[in-house]
Simulated scan of single mutants.
Amino acid sequence: MYGNMKALCCFALRFFLLVDVSLVLGDLVSPQNVTLETLNTHYVLQWEWSPQTAINSTVTFTAQSLAKYKAHKQVHKQDWQSVCVNVTEHRCDFSNAGLHYFGMFLLRVRVNTAQKSSRWVQIEFCPDKHAALGPPSNVQLNSVKEDLEIIISDPLSSTNQSMKELSQKMYYLIQHWKKSDSSQESKTVLKTESNVVILSNLDKWTEYCVRVQSCCAFYNKSSSFSDTLCKQTGGDTSYQQIVVYFLLSLLFLLVVLFLWFCLYKMRKIIKGIFYPSIELPVYMQERWSSDSDMPKLLHPESESVCDHLVLNSVETPDTEAIVTDALISQDTVMHSRHGSGDSGVYSTEEDSGHTHITRTDVQMEGLCKTKTDHSEETHDRMHELCV
């Protein structure tokens, strides 16, 4: 009887303890659909949670990690490392949490409010086994004569370390095919562990496409393919290609000449519009083209030239005296010449014709030359006579 009462009391005590725990923790729903998104050494814990159970409260989340071997010993159960504390997002980044690539870890998350917390939701994670492998960080495709050269860069970790140093037995699968035929049957797959690969035995002057995939044989992991790259192979230049290149060069030259001719014509038209050429009248061009018709300036001290001399009788005593003196001087000269055997008419013969100089012409010429030896008043009067 006493034993039954003791057992009943223990049962009641345990019942009330469970009720108290449910009052504290039971109101908040734990996170659901906890998953881990990974790529190489990038690890992001994600979860879902419905806010219906805590409408009037501010809700946050806490995520922690622990090495799995510590979970078996009670003394190490308090060594959980908090990576995200009271965050509002439904994700937590464990990339820099110190998770060794070949270790085993426990990751957990719960919901927090100011008064309550939900139960922990825990998952197990082994990076070497569960982390996804990424494609090559870079792929280069070069044409080397008739072959194609592929240069592959290893995928990198969060600390820029090559994944070949972490992932066991890692290799690459290379797919290449003619760009004109992209069917699945035409794609050739090449397996290699090298980072530099030469594709040979390809068709000349043909464009090929290439993409690369990272693979791990230990856990049979494979990445997505890299971006597709296409390149044309080389080869010897054929006669048809030489003819085509020549025709293209000739066409280019003709186009350049045509454009130059158009620009030249446009330049002349524009110049004619803005800078028109104005020609002088014909009679002005004829006058100015001859040097004999050009106006000349006479030096004040030079001899006067008289084409025609017209003598008019002026009833001025001084003028008549001057004319008489000039005639007398001329008669004296002429008589002296006549006395020496010359006649009163002189003639000179030239190749181009005959020129007759009469006594009257000699007298007029001497009269015009003599006027420069007189006074200023006499000079002015003789100038009037000459004119």
Rank of each mutant, 00 (worst) to 15 (best):
E349I: 02
M5S: 13
P300K: 15
E207K: 15
A97H: 06
Q161A: 12
S302C: 09
C126W: 00
S82Y: 06
G234V: 05
N56F: 13
Q363H: 03
T319V: 10
V255S: 07
L141Y: 07
K268S: 14
L367C: 01
E376Q: 12
L99K: 03
L28D: 00
L280H: 13
R287N: 10
S57G: 07
K369V: 00
S289N: 15
D236E: 12
H299G: 12
S347C: 03
N86D: 12
R337M: 10
D361M: 08
F94I: 02
Q81C: 02
S162F: 05
N33R: 05
H176S: 05
C126I: 02
Y2V: 06
S289Q: 10
D181F: 09
S182V: 12
A71W: 01
S343Q: 10
Y275L: 12
E365V: 00
N201C: 05
E149V: 05
L253V: 09
Y264A: 06
V345D: 08
E350F: 04
P300T: 13
S186I: 07
S65G: 06
E376W: 11
S30P: 08
K164N: 09
E89P: 06
S214R: 09
R359V: 03
M104W: 02
W80E: 02
K204S: 14
E315A: 07
P136A: 06
H356F: 06
L311A: 02
C216D: 15
K191L: 09
C230L: 04
Q64W: 04
K164A: 03
Q232Y: 04
D307F: 08
Y101G: 05
V144C: 10
Y239Q: 11
K145N: 14
A97N: 07
Q161Y: 03
W205M: 07
S347W: 03
D93M: 14
R287F: 12
S224G: 15
A71V: 02
W260M: 12
R267Q: 15
Y172C: 00
N220W: 05
Y283S: 15
H130N: 14
S223T: 09
L385I: 11
E207C: 07
E303N: 13
D325F: 12
Q330C: 14
S95D: 11
E193W: 06
F274D: 13
P135C: 08
T58L: 13
D93A: 10
L13A: 15
D203L: 06
F61T: 02
L385S: 08
L13F: 10
N195P: 04
F11P: 00
T348M: 14
L107K: 01
V387S: 13
P51M: 02
T192E: 03
R359I: 05
M364T: 01
K77V: 04
E207I: 12
P281T: 14
V83M: 01
M334F: 07
D380G: 06
S118I: 02
I322L: 15
S200Y: 00
H308V: 09
L107E: 00
H100V: 12
K164R: 14
V212P: 02
T192R: 03
R91Q: 13
S186L: 04
T332V: 14
R359P: 00
Y171N: 15
D342K: 11
N312I: 09
Y43V: 00
L327E: 03
M266N: 08
A326C: 09
L229G: 04
L36Y: 02
K369M: 03
N220V: 06
V83F: 00
H374K: 06
F15G: 00
E349M: 06
K145H: 15
R108V: 07
V87R: 09
Q363P: 01
